[in-house]
């Protein structure tokens, strides 16, 4: 076990990775859901009946936060922090886990923001042409693809790392 300044470096890196995945994904989603929420409140102010559909659209950019959390959770599970019996993590493993968290952390951050903007724009469709609401739901989902790819990469990497 390597320790830097008396800190257990391997475990620290793993936790740092988990934290990054959770909070960067969370930031992306918060901004995205925030933008979509503002637009939704604008539409609802004038037309309260659209609330349900807009709520769905607002929820869409929220998945990045969930994906980030999921990866974070997976790392916590992997290093045994949840059961109260932490594994011994070498600095190599720590770095590996840390790097494995990066795909979802960054793809979640950026795609969350952009998905929020597309969602907000799609709300314009719901406001103006309610009959095309189904199509409006699909457009923001296109952005999510890249968060999904990030999530997959992170998960495959984490499952592949030997502890």
């Amino acid at each position: 076990m390597v320790s830097w300044f008396g800190i257990e470096a391997g475990m620290g890196l793993a936790i740092l990775g988990a934290a990054l995945a959770v909070f960067l994904g969370g930031i992306g989603s918060s901004i995205g859901v925030g933008i979509a929420g503002q637009m939704a409140s604008g539409v609802v102010t004038e037309d309260p009946e659209k609330f349900g559909k807009l709520l769905l659209l607002q929820a869409l950019p929220g998945t990045q936060g969930i994906y980030g959390f999921l990866v974070g959770f997976w790392v916590i599970l992997k290093v045994g922090l949840l059961g109260g019996d932490p594994a011994t993590i070498t600095i190599d493993q720590g770095f590996q886990l840390f790097a494995a968290c990066l795909p979802i952390a960054f793809s979640g951050l950026i795609s969350g923001i952009w998905q929020g903007k597309v969602s907000a724009a799609a709300m314009g469709i719901v406001a103006k042409r309610p009959e095309a609401s189904g199509k409006a739901l699909i457009l923001p989902a296109m952005v999510e693809t890249y968060a999904i790819l990030g999530l997959l990469a992170s998960i495959l990497l984490i499952t592949g790392i030997r502890i």
Binding site: I31, M39, S41, G42, D47, I113, A120, M123
Partner: peptide, 20 residues
């Protein structure tokens, strides 16, 4: 530029309905 236009999100939301 991201923060630039999303400032108007609420306003645009209302306008989109009013345009109708």
């Amino acid at each position: 530029s991201i923060s630039q236009d999303s400032r108007y999100a609420y306003a645009v939301g209302r306008i989109r309905v009013l345009e109708n």
